[in-house]
Write a protein that binds this DNA or RNA. Structure first.
Lengths: 97, 97
DNA sequence: CGGTCATTTCGACCGTCATCGAATGATGAC
DNA sequence: GTCATCATTCGATGACGGTCGAAATGACCG
């Protein structure tokens, strides 16, 4: 956890695109707020969306490396990928300021 | 105006979408690199793009409030909007870490 | 097994947007 | 005025992606 990740250009652009969707950003913030893993069902309360679309967005967030997925039987929970988020913000700050 | 701007939700999401395009991001970094105002023609060297598309992207960057535009006769130059960039990075850092 | 629930995949629809050629506008040089 | 140059606008096209219903997958329970 001490090491800071370095993002490839592709990763960096993929994260930017993933965060640019309002629903995905809201979902990610929801996951970040909780101390423990956030169950899939909890998203439905915060973002009004069909199960199909929700599943799609979770896949995008995972593909961008922004969240980690835990599967417990038929339930799925998510936790934030703190290192990647930190690396992204750091890279953006380094580029833009 | 104060040193730190606060972004509305709409502004924040618009900036995210604007930065999510590779060419626009490259253009913005080009503008940030220079100490002085960057002429429109200088972009063509860094990003291979038609004049029409370039004009389109500059309009998007301006609409997002990320750059300022200077018109000198038939030439156009751009400077970064430092306060907005700072506010965006700050907001993102505050949300994601 | 049969049934229910959580999640995913499939397929299609539709809006948004990046892209560029061609035409237009605007400016400056001669 | 005429012409060349820089930039913008217009219109069309094609691709990408968000959306959801319906069907499918997988897990738990009795």
């Amino acid at each position: 956890m001490a090491t800071t990740s370095t993002l490839t250009e592709d990763q960096f652009l993929l994260i930017a695109k993933t965060l640019a969707d309002p629903r995905r950003y809201a979902i990610l913030r929801q996951i970040l707020e909780s101390e423990t893993a956030t169950p899939c069902s909890a998203m439905r309360d915060c973002v009004e969306v069909s199960p199909a679309t929700l599943s799609h967005h979770m896949k995008e967030l995972e593909a961008a490396g922004l969240i980690h997925v835990q599967r417990n039987g038929k339930f799925v929970s998510y936790t934030p990928a703190a290192e990647i988020l930190k690396a992204y913000v750091h890279r953006l700050s380094s580029d833009l300021t």
